[in-house]
Computed example of a mutant assay.
Amino acid sequence: MDRTHLLAQVRQAVSDAGAAILEVYAHPSRFDTEIKADDSPLTAADRAANRIIETALHELTPEIPILSEESAQAPWSERRHWTRCWVVDPLDGTKEFLKRNDEFTVNVALVENHRPTLGVVYAPALGRWFYAARDGGAWRQDGQKMPVRVEVCEKIADRPWQVVGSRSHNTPEVDAFVERLGDAELVAMGSSLKLCLVADGSADVYPRLGPTSEWDTCAAQAVVEEAGGQVLDAMTGQPLSYNARETLLNPHFICCARPNPAWFPAVQSQAAATEAAG
C-alpha cells in the first residue's frame, strides 16, 4: 500500500468534511443538536462530515471496513477478524464546537494489525493540520503555510512541566497528577489537539485518566508515534492498540516523548485508584 498517496487522498476527504463542518459552524441556528445514549452531543455537522468521509473511504479502499463514531458498529464477532480498518471521528470535540472555541477536529486513521499506520487530524476552524504515515514522519501545517516536520522533545530543564489537560473533561485525578509533579503548569486544550501538542513539542505530557474511545486517539497517536513519542496504557506501559478488544473504550493512558520516572508511577497509581472506584 502506498501510504503517501493514500494520505493525500484522505486529506482531501477530511478537507471536504471540514468545509461541511464550517458551513454549519457559521450558522448556530443549524446546530440541530441531539443527545446520544452516552450523553454526548451529536450535531448536523457530525452527520455531514461522517457522510463525506465514509463515502470517500469506501471509494478509495472498498475492501477496508470503517469504524466510525457516528455509524453503527460491527459486532466483535466480525471485527475480531479485521486485519485493517479505518477509525474515524468525523467531529472530535463536539462540546468545543458547541462552545464555539474552535478546538474541534476531524480524525481519520488507518489501523493495520491493531496499530495506527496513517493518521490525519484537522482543526478546520483553526486551519491547522497534523498528519503522518508510517516511516514518513509527522507534519503540521497552518493555513497555506508550508508543512513543517514535527518531533517530540525532552522536557526543558528550566521550564515547569507542561501538562496537557482536557478543556471540557478535566478530572480530579489529573489535578492530583499535576500537584504531585510540583513544578508544573496545566495547558487546557480540546479534542485530539491535546495529543498533537505533545507531538510538536509544545507540551511534555498528556495524562488521560478518564474515558475516551478509540476514534478519539487513533489518528493523533499515528502523529505522535511518527514524531518520536508514545501513547501508553497507564497501567501496562504498552502502546494503545485498536480494534483489538470487544470494547472500543481506551484504557487510561499517557502521551509523552518517553516515560519519565518523575511522573509514570503517579499516573499508574491514579489510574489504579480511578479504575478501582469505577
Rank of each mutant, 00 (worst) to 15 (best):
A45S: 11
E59I: 03
R51G: 08
E69N: 07
E59P: 12
E59L: 12
I35W: 11
A20W: 00
A56F: 02
N50V: 00
E70M: 14
E70K: 10
A45K: 08
A49W: 00
T55L: 05
A48V: 05
E34C: 14
D39F: 13
Y25F: 15
I66W: 06
L57Y: 00
P28S: 05
A44P: 14
E54Q: 13
D46F: 02
E70Y: 12
D38A: 05
L22P: 13
E34L: 15
I52G: 04
A49I: 00
G18Q: 08
I64S: 02
L42D: 09
T33R: 11
A44E: 11
R30Y: 10
E54W: 03
A20P: 04
A48Y: 03
D38H: 01
E69V: 01
D39S: 15
A56R: 10
A37Q: 13
D32V: 03
E23M: 15
E59F: 09
A37G: 09
A49D: 01
I35R: 15
I35C: 04
I64N: 04
T33S: 10
E23Y: 11
I52Q: 03
R51A: 14
I52E: 01
K36H: 04
A48Q: 15
R30I: 07
P41I: 06
R30D: 07
G18K: 12
H27R: 14
F31Q: 10
I35S: 09
D38P: 01
F31D: 10
I35N: 06
V24T: 12
I66S: 04
L42M: 14
E69G: 08
D39Y: 12
T33H: 07
L57Q: 02
R51D: 11
I64Q: 02
I64G: 00
A19C: 09
E69W: 01
A49L: 00
E69P: 06
I53K: 00
P65K: 03
I52P: 07
S40K: 08
A19K: 13
A44N: 13
I21C: 07
R47V: 13
N50A: 12
T43V: 09
D46I: 06
D32N: 13
E59Q: 15
F31I: 03
I21H: 08
Y25Q: 09
E69D: 01
D46Y: 01
E23C: 12
T61C: 15
D32S: 11
A49S: 08
I53W: 02
E59M: 10
E70Q: 10
A56S: 10
T33N: 02
F31T: 10
A20S: 13
K36V: 02
F31R: 08
P65Q: 08
Y25R: 13
P28D: 00
P28K: 06
A48T: 11
A19N: 08
R30S: 08
L67A: 07
L67F: 14
Y25M: 07
L22R: 15
T33A: 13
A26N: 06
E23L: 11
A37M: 08
I52N: 03
S29I: 11
L60E: 00
E23W: 06
A49G: 01
A44K: 14
E69S: 07
T43P: 12
I35Q: 13
